[in-house]
C-alpha cells in the first residue's frame, strides 16, 4: 500500500478534521472520494445517528438557546422569541436583592463540602480495600458499600427522617441510652444541617466512588511495588510512594470534573432535606431557581440565575483544566 504525496497531504488534512481517526487500508480508498460521496455512502450511519441527533437538538441545544430567557420578559402567549427584551434587568435585580449573598454563601458552602471535603474519602476507601488480601471479604465489602448508591434520594431522606426523629428515632434513642437528652430535632436545626448532608453523602457515595480508584490502582505497575519493598518500604510507604503517585492522573481528572459542580451540586438532597427549621442554610441557588421559577412562575428571573450558575460552572472547569494542564499535565482535553 503505497500512498502518493497527494494522498498523504489529503490524508493529513482529513486527519486534522477527523480528530485522531486511525488509519486503515480501506479508509484511504474511501477518503479519496469527494465529501458528499463519502457522506452518501455512510447514509445508514446517519440514519442510526438520527434519533440521538434529534434528541440533542431538541432536548439540549434548544434549551441552551433558550437561555436568552434570562434577558426577556417571558410571556407564555408570545413564546421565548416574541417576548420583549429587558436587557440585564434580572441580573441587576438578583445582585441587588436581599437573597443574593445569602444564596451564594449557602451554595458555596454546600459546594465546598461536596466537591472538596468529601473528595478524599473514596480514595481512602480504595487504598484500604487495596490492602485487604482476603478476596471473599473484599468482595462482600464492595457489595455492601456500593449498595447505597442504588437507593434514591427520596428513600434515603425518608430513612434519615425516621432515624433522626426526636425521641423515637434510633439516633436519639442511642443518645438517651448513653445518658443524653434524646430529644434533639436534628432536621429542624440549621446547626446540624451541614453535618447531616456530609454524612449522608459519604454514606451514599463512598463505595461507588471508590470503584474508579480501585480500577486505577489495579493498573499500577507491579514491579514498582517490588522495587519499593526492596528499598525497605513497608506497606504504608508503598501506598504513599507507589500507589498514590500511580493514580494521580485519575484523582486529578475526577477533581477537575467535580469542580464544575461547585455552584450546582446536590439539588435533590437540598430540596428533600429542607425543613422550615434549616431553610436559612439549605436554600441554595438550585433550590431557589426551582422555587421561584417552577413554583412561582418568574421564568426570566430564574433563568438569569440559572445562566449565571451554568456559566460559572463552565468557566471553573475550563480554568481548572488549563491550570492543571500547565502544572501537572493532567487534563480532560
Amino acid at each position: 500500500m503505497c500512498a502518493t504525496t497527494c494522498d498523504k497531504i489529503e490524508n493529513l488534512q482529513r486527519e486534522s478534521s477527523m480528530r485522531k481517526g486511525k488509519q486503515n487500508p480501506s479508509g484511504i480508498t474511501i477518503r479519496t472520494k469527494p465529501l458528499w460521496k463519502r457522506m452518501l455512502s455512510c447514509w445508514p450511519l446517519y440514519l442510526m445517528l438520527l434519533p440521538a441527533i434529534v434528541y440533542y437538538i431538541l432536548i439540549c441545544y434548544v434549551p441552551i438557546a433558550g437561555n436568552v430567557l434570562a434577558f426577556k420578559d417571558y410571556s407564555f402567549r408570545k413564546g421565548i422569541w416574541g417576548s420583549p427584551w429587558v436587557g440585564m434587568k434580572y441580573f441587576n435585580m438578583f445582585f441587588s436583592s436581599y437573597d443574593c449573598w445569602r444564596l451564594i454563601r449557602n451554595t458555596l458552602h454546600i459546594g465546598f463540602i461536596k466537591c472538596i471535603l468529601e473528595f478524599p474519602f473514596a480514595i481512602l476507601l480504595a487504598l484500604l480495600l487495596n490492602e485487604i488480601r482476603a478476596e471473599k471479604f473484599k468482595k462482600v465489602t464492595q457489595t455492601i458499600t456500593y449498595l447505597p448508591h442504588f437507593l434514591s434520594s427520596v428513600i434515603i431522606v425518608t430513612m434519615l427522617q425516621r432515624i433522626l426523629a426526636p425521641n423515637t428515632g434510633v439516633l436519639n434513642q442511642i443518645i438517651k441510652a448513653l445518658g443524653g437528652g434524646g430529644d434533639t430535632f436534628f432536621l429542624m436545626q440549621s446547626g446540624y444541617f451541614h453535618r447531616i448532608l456530609f454524612t449522608m453523602d459519604i454514606w451514599r457515595n463512598i463505595g461507588w466512588d471508590s470503584i474508579i480508584y480501585l480500577a486505577a490502582i489495579s493498573g499500577v505497575d507491579q514491579e514498582l511495588y517490588e522495587a519499593a519493598s526492596m528499598d525497605g518500604c513497608n506497606r504504608l510507604g508503598q501506598c504513599w510512594h507507589v500507589t498514590l503517585p500511580g493514580i494521580r492522573g485519575t484523582i486529578g481528572l475526577l477533581f477537575i470534573m467535580g469542580v464544575g459542580g461547585l455552584l450546582s451540586s446536590g439539588f435533590e438532597q437540598m430540596w428533600l432535606l429542607r425543613t422550615p427549621g434549616n431553610m436559612a442554610v439549605a436554600d441554595t441557588l438550585d433550590v431557589y431557581v426551582v422555587r421561584i421559577g417552577l413554583q412561582n412562575g418568574q421564568f426570566g428571573y430564574a433563568s438569569a440565575i440559572g445562566l449565571i450558575q451554568g456559566l460559572v460552572g463552565l468557566v471553573l472547569v475550563v480554568a481548572t483544566n488549563s491550570i492543571s494542564k500547565k502544572f501537572t499535565e493532567v487534563a480532560l482535553w
Binding site: 441527533i53 434549551p63 441552551i64 421565548i80 431557581v289 417552577l294 440559572g306
Partner: peptide, 24 residues
Amino acid sequence: RGIIIFAITFTMLFGGGTIPTYVQ
C-alpha cells in the same frame, strides 16, 4: 464524526438551565 462528538460532549459542560428546559 469529530464535530458531532464535540457537540455531544459539550452538553456535559454547559446546558440550558432548569427554566429554558421546562419551557422547551
